[in-house]
């Protein structure tokens, strides 16, 4: 049974038809990779799901409820969004930034409960930033900052996590650990949609991929089906490259630090 489904979604921004009849569906425990060239409409799709952009037409359902009929606060509790923007305007501590994720669960004047704090701690530990708790955001490296923002999104403890380019600008080790983290999140019963440019990691970690091209879903399904020659050349104008015997290549990698996440 699908947790989140999109039917025939159309979005127009500033007169441009960005998304054309896009459809997809996602079940609990699934990691969906949203791939496609720059300008294909991936971020727009994510923002529409996050409620930041109003669609022209289409059905958005979350657990069989109409998404646009959900009250603002309920929607915020059920869908977490990790923006592409990686800045914090004030240099709060890591702890306080992650704690912002509990905002949708707290009424006015309500202080975080023990349960809230436990969820914050869990997100901090999952993102492997426990040692950074008291650091100010502006003193973190790019990879650390990314994991803090991801922990903030995890702290919402929403059914669905939308992550816009969570591993762009990360080195291989950080990219790998973030992908693993997303995968672990799914295994705890959440559903994740991530916009990805790294097709190798997308193929390796995602349960299904959606390939967007000029606002249309041109392929939807298991990675090996989506990333075929035809689709890749149509969307990206590239073909898979087979390494010859003498060519130096970098193979898909594993984390080798002893204390990092297990490989799924």
């Amino acid at each position: 049974m699908s947790l989140l489904s999109i039917q025939a979604l159309n979005v127009t921004l500033a007169g441009r038809h960005i998304l054309k009849d896009a459809s997809l569906s996602l079940a609990r425990g699934e990691l969906l990779g949203l791939v496609g060239p720059n300008g294909a409409g991936k971020s727009t799709l994510l923002k529409t799901l996050a409620g930041l952009i109003a669609p022209d037409s289409g059905q958005l359902t979350l657990a069989e409820a109409q998404l646009d009929a959900l009250p603002r606060d309920q929607r915020a509790r059920q869908i977490a969004y990790l923006a592409q923007e990686r800045t914090a305007h004030w240099p709060l501590t890591v702890q306080r930034i992650v704690a912002l994720g509990r905002f949708p669960h707290l009424a006015d004047w309500q202080q975080p409960s023990e349960a809230d704090r436990a969820i914050i701690d869990r997100a901090i530990i999952a993102a492997d930033i426990d040692h950074l708790r008291q650091r100010r955001f502006n003193t973190l490296s790019g990879g650390e900052g990314m994991r803090v923002l991801l922990a903030r999104a995890l702290a919402v403890d929403a059914d669905v996590l939308l992550a816009d380019e969570p591993i762009s600008a990360l080195d291989p080790a950080h990219a790998l650990s973030v992908m693993q983290l997303l995968r672990d999140t799914c295994e705890r019963g959440h559903a994740v949609i991530a916009v990805l440019h790294d097709l190798t990691l997308a193929a390796r970690f995602c349960h299904q991929l959606v390939l967007l091209h000029q606002g249309e879903v041109i392929a939807h399904g298991a990675p090996q089906y989506v990333l075929n020659d035809t689709n890749l050349s149509r969307a990206y104008h590239v073909t898979p490259w087979q390494a010859g015997e003498d060519d130096a290549i970098i193979l898909p990698w594993h984390l080798c630090k002893p204390d990092t996440h297990r490989e799924g």
Binding site: A50, I97, F103
Partner: peptide
């Protein structure tokens, strides 16, 4: 609390339920 969420930008604040 609403102003706190704006630390991460308007989009993030909006998805946290801030109008």
């Amino acid at each position: 609390p609403s102003l706190n969420t704006l630390t991460l930008g308007e989009d993030t604040a909006a998805t946290l339920g801030v109008n």
